[in-house]
């Protein structure tokens, strides 16, 4: 379970560094976010949700069935968009409205 941080998109705001419940994301010499120990990531997606620059992607480790798909997160007002990219397929966008409760 882990995340990948895109250095080109990271602006060094530190939101993910603050949010990670495991204190796993640190700043590098330029102030940008780095995940120090990817194997320590819980996969809670807190960093994904805190990042306003789509710099964080979420993926499944190969040991738990990952095949390279990436998931990103974008907030548009009260609607959360979970964006999934799978090689060879159209991008998937699952929108969840904050005001809608889970049906299950």
């Amino acid at each position: 379970m882990s995340i990948r941080i895109d250095r080109n998109l990271c602006v060094g705001c530190g939101a993910c560094v603050e949010a990670c419940p495991g204190n796993l994301i640190k700043r590098d010499y330029k102030g940008k976010a780095v995940l120090k120990r990817p194997e320590e990531c819980w996969g809670c997606a807190s960093c994904l949700k805190e990042c306003r620059f789509k710099a964080v992607s979420y993926f499944l480790g190969a040991d738990i069935g990952g095949q390279g798909a990436l998931m990103q997160f974008e907030r548009d007002g009260d609607v959360s968009h979970w964006l999934v990219s799978i090689a060879g397929r159209e991008p998937i966008d699952i929108a969840v409205d904050r005001h809608c409760a889970n049906k299950y």
Binding site: G43, Y58, F59, G65, G66, S80, V96, N102
Partner: peptide
């Protein structure tokens, strides 16, 4: 959607596999 609100890995797993 329910899994995205608490365990997003499961939704990703269904989509990816």
């Amino acid at each position: 959607r329910a899994y995205l609100n608490m365990a997003p890995a499961q939704t990703l797993k269904w989509l990816e596999s």
